[in-house]
Amino acid sequence: MVRSFWKRRIRNSGLLMVALALVWLWVRTRERNLQPVAHETGYIMIAAVFFLALYNIRKKVPFLPLGTSSTWLQWHLYVGLGSIGVFALHTGWHWPTGIFETSLFALYASTMLSGLFGLYWTRTIPGQLARVGDEVTFERIPALRRRMQWQANETVIESVAASGTTTLADFYSAQMYGFFRLPRGVKYFLRPTTSRRKSLLADMQHLQRYLSEPERKACEKLFALVRRKDELDFHGARQGLLKYWLFVHIGLTYALVLAASLHGLMATAFGGGL
């Protein structure tokens, strides 16, 4: 257990660099000897793609002693990063022009890009989540949201009953009802900010002067609820991002595997020979 992630990072990156350098040297030597390299880098590439896709299969059989998922992910990451280098060698830094090849290129690039984004997100978002609010399970978020909405409604209704005025209720129905009822939009999903919460809280603060005592108490409760709802939204958005990027990544993976297989098949069948 005594191991530092940094140590591992440096070691694995070093190994990756060495492996890439070896492949590069090998390819260059072959190229210099007028031996074909496109097929060879292609084999490496398709092996890498299949290996990367295999990680998804590995996750489906956790009961087999095939090494820990963490080890697999390390391989997945570094093989994935290494595949960029092999891909560059394979394409010879050419931008493809054929329709199919361009699609394949785009598939690989987008899969890789989604993977890189995913890596970035999986390394940054957990910290944000740990710092903000209570830990909630993604599946339970709708129920919690519903509960908060209900609590907010009840609080406001009670305040109306207690004070006989509707100042807070009017404000609630005008400004806060939607906030409690719905999750945030796409913009927030991609880039959460606290601006909505801040403006709501500021407005509520401003409203204080017009409120009766029961309403003021209710408003205090609403303050807390707004904060919690905002945190819940944050969790919803960030956890959702962590889950939904995989949709894209895995969806692309299958398309990539299929297209790469066809490409490999055609390259082998059409490849010149003598």
Binding site: H94, P96, T97, G98, I99, F100, E101, G251, Y254, A255, L258, A259, L262, M266
Partner: peptide, 24 residues
């Protein structure tokens, strides 16, 4: 996956197969 498979099938069976598969 099915969309990809379908696209590939269309690609292989369609009239413009050569045009599409041409690698450049």
């Amino acid at each position: 996956a099915i969309a990809a498979l379908g696209s590939i099938a269309i690609l292989l069976c369609g009239n413009w197969r050569e045009h599409a598969l041409r690698p450049g």
